[in-house]
Design a protein around this nucleic acid. Structure first.
Lengths: 142, 142
DNA sequence: GAGCAAATGCAACAAAGTTGCATTTGCGTG
DNA sequence: CACGCAAATGCAACTTTGTTGCATTTGCTC
């Protein structure tokens, strides 16, 4: 029980989680831990090259099920995964989505304090999602 | 300039917007104005029966472009349309999405006041979107 | 009523996921 | 070390949500 400053290898993490150590899983977990922001399935697929689409979906779900990754949906409703215990810079956020051009703007405003949740609910992430018309689009009346 | 208490017919609205009055448009706008909540493409398609999928998408976009409908994305990222100037009961909202079972819970808490927007931005809707684990899912450790 | 642009309908495609099934692989056991 | 079995992978196919191209039909103006 000595303090570990060396980050655990993907293989050690998989073993510790009690799931088989396979080549695809090592690559996915490695990529996830190397990433600086939550990654979508499409991004990981492009990054890893030749992993099977379905296998990648399943590996990501498995990692999330065993606590090695966090699964969250982004503003567009697309799943994004990040390695657990990795620092996540863009976590809580205020977004503005332009309903005309579809652009997403990240506002610098701090997200408001979350309301009290019903008993048993555990908060993990919060997005304050605003929609309207951005400066550029509100210029042209269309 | 006399006060109109009679709601305008879909046909009158289409004409006023300067777009052609067609059968599919009348049906879509009618359904939208009869609906009590923002409708997804799939819901409208089921409701209307035999409108072409693509035509329905295009009609909805046309109505939105001409101010007769409002296009917004729901929590899942799916477009929802509502007739403009119709009362929309579920507009501003606090949602909690369970990252494990995917369930959406509508919290009774009032949405927080929106932050100040950059110049030129016009706010139309706001969602305070929380994610985490719901009471039922946090029961079973899995 | 004729002509033309606009709108519709159809086929096809794209992105994001899911499901079923056959094959391969990890790994505990002898 | 090799054997066997469950677990993981890879492939094909299908779903949902949305978009694009093109031929045909329809609304509206003259």
């Amino acid at each position: 029980m000595n303090a570990q400053t060396i980050p655990p290898t993907p293989a050690a993490l998989l073993r510790a989680a009690g799931i088989k150590v396979t080549q695809p899983r090592l690559r996915v977990l490695g990529a996830l831990r190397a990433a600086t922001r939550p990654m979508s399935h499409a991004e990981l697929e492009a990054l890893l090259g030749d992993v099977d689409r379905v296998t990648l979906y399943r590996i990501l779900d498995t990692l999330a099920d065993h606590g090695l990754a966090t699964k969250a949906t982004d503003v567009r409703g697309v799943f994004r995964f990040s390695a657990t215990d990795m620092p996540r810079p863009h976590d809580d956020h205020v977004h503005f989505r332009c309903s005309r051009c579809g652009g997403v703007f990240c506002l610098k405003a701090a997200p408001p304090p979350p309301p009290r949740l019903p008993r048993g609910f555990r908060l993990e992430e919060a997005d304050f999602d605003l929609r309207g018309v951005c400066a550029k689009c509100s210029g042209r009346t269309s």
